[in-house]
Each structure stands twice: as C-alpha cells, then as structure tokens.
Design a protein around this nucleic acid. Structure first.
Lengths: 342, 342
DNA sequence: CGCCAAAATGGTAGCGTTCCCAAATGAAGC
DNA sequence: GCTTCATTTGGGAACGCTACCATTTTGGCG
C-alpha cells in the first residue's frame, strides 16, 4: 500500500488557481476573488467574464488557502463516542441541518468512549482550527478541558447537564432520568426490579442513570433484585444475551430497567422468546427512545432523549458564539414514554 | 445571531505559531517543524527542548497552513445520503477505523438522497482538496461525474456495483438481491407476494431491488399481488403504516418483500399487532440486515449487505490510491439470512 | 590533529487565498 | 472641459507552514 500523497502532490501543484482564472478572464486576481465571494462588488460585465472563465477551467477555490488568509475555517467539529450509533447520528444530522445553510462544514470525530482517545482527538481537531466544537458529555480529562478552554473556540458540551460547563452545556440530568425509570416501575407496583447494563465502565452517562435509578429505589426502601452488567458491546444482541442471563439466574424479578434502548429492545425479544409475558410477568423500560422502540411488539416503554433538539440547539449555540451572553446551561428535558412493555 | 467569525479572527491572529515555539526553544523554525513531524531527524537535545516549548505554549500546529504548504490535506470525504441512518453510519465508522490510524481525518457530507444536492456537496467538498472521496452509489449528475473525474482525486463509489465506475467501485448488485428475495419467497411456496417501499423515487438502489424482485417473479409467471409505495420517510414507523395499509386493502397476500429492513421491522410489528401470524399467514423479508432484525420476534429474514466490509474496502482503496492498478470493481456479495419471518 | 562524509540545523521561497490600501475609472456638477 | 466624489479594480503583503537547499556541526578514522 503506497503513499497516495506523492501522486496527490504532483497533481495538485499546477491545479487551477485564482491566477489562472484571472488570466483567462483578463482581469486582476482580486476581481476574481470578489466575483466569487461578493459578486455585488464587481461590475456586471467583469462578473460574467469571470464566471465563464471559472466554468471553462473548472475552477474550485482552495479552502485551505482561503481559510489561512481569512482565519475563517467555516468548520465545526462534532466529537461523539461512536459514529455508527443512531443516537449520535441523529445529533450530528440535526446539527448539520442547522449549520450547512450557514455555509459551515461539519467534521465528525469519534472517541470510542475513551477519555484518552478524546484527548488525542481534541488535540488533532484543534489543528483544523474549527469555529466551534460540539462535544459529547461533560466528563473530560483535565488536559482536554484545559485545551478546550484555552482554544478560544466556542465549545458546546451536549447530552448531559453538568455543574461546571467549559462554555455552553446542553442536555439533561441522567440521574433524574434513571430515577424516573425507577419510579415508573414502582408506580406499576413492581418491587423485584433488576438492572441491565453493558460497557458501564466506559459510559459515564449510563453510570449516572444507574445511580439515579438505584437511589430512587432506595428512597422507597427497595434494592435492585439483580444487576446484569454484561461484558458485550452495547447493542440489541447484547441486550438479548443479558436478558437470557437474567432469566437463567432463577432470581424472581418482575421488572427490568435497561440502561439504554438497544439493550431494552434486545431484552424484550429474549423475554418473549423465553415464554415470559411482557409486561405481565416482566415489565421492561429502556432509555433514549429509538425509532424502533415504538414498533416492536410489545412496544417499549422508555425515556425519550430529545436528540434532534439537542443537535439543533448545539449548532445554534455555536453560531451564536460565546459572546452571546445567553444561557450557558440548557436543560432540554426528557420525557417518560409509557408504552406496552410496562 | 451575530457572526462568530469576527471574534474568531481576532482571537486567531496572534495565536501561537511555529515561530513562537522556535523563539521559546531557542532554535530555528525548521527544527520545530521537524521535531514535530519527523522527530528522528532532530537531535535528542533539541527535540526535548522543542517538546517542552510546545507544551509550555500549548502549541497546536495549524493544519491549514501545513496543508497549503505541503499539498497534503490528510482528509478523506465520505458522501452519504443520510447522516442519521445506521446503515451509512456503519460504513462511515468502518472507513474511519481504517483511515484514522494512517493519520487521515474523515469529513462526512450528506446529500439527502438528492442528485442535485450531491452535485452541490461535491463542488464544496472539492474545495477542501481531500485525498480521497468515498461516495454512495453509482448514480450521479453528469456534472458531478465530470467534476469528480477531473479532480484527479481517487474516487470510490460504494454500495452498488455499476458497469462504468468513475474510478473504483465497491458494492453488490441490488437487482440480484431483489431477485434473491423473490426466489426465496417463491421457494417457500408463496405466490401472492406483495412489495412495500417508501421514498422509492429518491433511492435508486431500492428501485433496482424492486426491479430485480419483479423480474424474478415474472420469470416464474408471478406478478406482485400488491405494491405499497408509502409516501412517508423510510423508517420503522413508515413500515408499520405501510403494512396496515396492505392489510386494510383486503388483498389476499401470503408474503411481502420490504425494500429495506427499517420498513420490514415495522411491517412485522404491524402484522403481529393486527393478528397475523408471521410467517404462517404472511412471510416477510427485508434487505440490509440491521442489528435489530435478528432480535425482534419473530426474527426477520433478510439479505445482508456487508456494510462494514464495504467501508473498510473503500478506505483501503483510497489509501492505495488510483495508481494501484488493482481491481476497479469489487463485488462484496450479499447473503440471504433466513430467520423466523419466512 | 586534521580531514571528510554524514548528520543536524536554519534561511528562504513559495503554497493560493484574503485584506488593506492605492490607483483608475466613471458619474455628476459647474 | 475640468474638478470632485463614489465606485471599481488591482497590487502587494500577509496568513503559518513545508520543501528545498545551503550551512554548520558532529563523529569516525588515518
């Protein structure tokens, strides 16, 4: 596997530049630049001449040069734990929908749920000098925090609400969400309540949902009947395996809180397959409200995380910049969505 | 909403540069550049001095300048129809996993399934001078094709196999996949076979799956008993609505091909809810094999699209570049996954 | 101790834009 | 026709970095 760079470089040197277009159109270099970036500042006659030269030569302005000269990258970085999850995809998508019409380009990086990777990614990302950074969560290495604060770039921490934002913070309280799940199951008269999680050591938000869940139970004098912390990766299949483990344990359980909807959907499937009636034998509640959660049978009770709204608000916060002395902390709230599984 | 650019510019001018680090470390500017980019070419002594100066000043190299000077952007663009879909997320994720270790950064853009948007996006993307472009599908506006061919950048068309690749083409035959679905249902003894699709006018791959499906039926003297082309957006809920429509039609149907798994999973749910036994009353087959498809009850028969492999191969093709006179067309194949729903 | 090759270091000239200002052109008024 | 002012146009200097080449230092060896 040879280095594509050499060919690249050879090709690129000598590609069409502003100067080529200027020569073709018989105008100055600045006239071309203006004809492209602020057409109103150029006379009709020259503008059309420039435009046809651009088309004739297939000129595409080099953003690197433009960015370097103007110190405006028109780039916004989004740092998420995972690129393949629909949860983060929806956030990115919503942010993109806001930013693209404003001429911004999104650049996505993933941390694989690791704080150290996040630090590496942040350092790399700052080299691109984005005009805004949207980052997942409020847990960062001290060095990451420091770096972001020093950067002078608007930083939006999304997904979870914390007490000490770097800059702007948009999210919900995951502890409260966990507590809401517990209270819902209790209100249904369940007392032998289990917990299912996976990759809990990596996902701080999931940890806090669990903590909030356990505390709420404790307030009612209940302790979790069983906790399955599955070693597999978060996903539908892992949820199913975890449920099988739970059923195999023989423990008497009448309700389960799955720390996210992937696990919960898989758990519902496994419960049904193993002859349990949901919710009669076993109530199940998840977290995040995936699209699929509403369509499975029985449909899944869950807690809706307003992902699209968070993505949109994060993008708008970046656009507003940090000078805008608006709200530094935005609680987008969550919503208990009661369906058939509880 | 004021323009964040001004603050940006003010901040950035006068940020830490190579020269500052050089002064701090008491060395030449080139020594700093080398200490960072090819540490082996610098003596131990100076390297440590540079390194501590970098840390002391919090220097982060400016990629714009580096890219401009070296004509190496270390950027690979991935153009997908949608950012929020898990199918595309997995492809992007797999490509990222290959490219990141090689020092590349991925830039994702979405076309919203529109050829015109794709053209706009391509033009914009070329301005960033990526070293490779991974684009979804083989259908492009003539201008888009032209632009990509002229660019001199390796282009990988992924997801579907065509006869005339711009450069490199990785995918499967969607017509064959559709035919496989039809043949599977026929082999199960079904003859009153329906089709469910959504947004069919935008998704050319789905169109070809349908065409292949219809042709295969025709070869066996069967015509689709019913076609539901739902107007909603592709998603689980739309699949459910389409199935309800199908059931309400009163048409005698014993099998359904859903043009993708989102629709199929939703359709399974709706069929069950409406008292149909799947597969006894109604067999259902989807396309793509989502993670969730294996975990619902009944689990979904589908055709697996090897997304991770495509993402990986596309990234490797970009790394290899176009000089590598290897395979221009790679058929990654699909696989019929028979589960409970058929 | 000197000599030469090899390694380490630094200066300079771009890379392709945009910004700033000067020059040129055109319009309007007398 | 000439001056004055607004509008267009263009030139040159950055922007921060790397490539290339020249220079300096080092180390090995006779």
């Amino acid at each position: 596997m040879t280095d594509p760079g050499d060919a690249m470089r050879a090709k690129r040197r000598g590609s069409v530049t502003l100067k080529d277009v200027a020569r073709e159109a018989g105008v100055g270099i600045m006239t071309v630049s203006r004809a492209i970036n602020s057409p109103d500042a150029v006379s009709e006659k020259l503008r059309t001449r420039v435009e046809s030269a651009v088309v004739a030569l297939g000129y595409v302005p080099n953003r690197w040069a433009g960015t370097l000269a103007s110190a405006r990258s028109r780039l916004v970085t989004v740092i998420v734990p995972s690129l393949s999850s629909r949860v983060f995809g929806e956030i990115v998508s919503a942010a993109d929908a806001v930013l693209t019409p404003h001429g911004y380009q999104i650049m996505v990086s993933n941390t694989a749920f690791s704080l150290d990777d996040e630090e590496t990614v942040c350092r790399k990302v700052l080299g691109w000098r984005p005009e805004g950074i949207i980052i997942s969560g409020i847990d960062h290495n001290p060095a990451t925090r420091e770096m972001l604060m020093q950067s002078g770039i608007p930083v939006v921490e999304a997904l979870e609400l914390g007490s000490d934002p770097i800059d702007i913070n948009i999210g919900i309280s995951h502890a409260d969400a966990g507590a809401t799940a517990a209270e819902h199951l209790l209100s249904r008269g369940r007392r032998r309540i289990a917990f299912i999680g996976a990759e809990m050591d990596l996902d701080f938000r999931a940890q806090r949902r669990r903590a909030g869940f356990c505390e709420a139970l404790a307030r009612h004098g209940v302790t979790p009947a069983l906790e399955i912390h599955h070693s597999g990766r978060v996903g539908f299949a892992t949820g199913a395996r975890a449920m099988e483990e739970l059923l195999a344990s023989g423990e008497a359980v009448d309700a389960v809180f799955c720390v996210n909807d992937e696990l919960a959907v898989g758990a519902v499937g496994a419960a049904i397959r193993n002859g349990r009636a949901v919710p009669d034998d076993l109530a199940i509640i998840g977290f995040s409200d995936l699209d699929v959660s509403a369509e499975i049978v029985p449909s899944l009770t869950t807690i809706r995380l307003p992902r699209v709204e968070m993505g949109r608000l994060a993008a708008e916060a970046v656009l507003a910049g940090r000078r805008e002395t608006g709200e530094k902390r935005i609680d987008v709230g969550y919503e208990l969505v009661v369906r058939e599984s509880s």
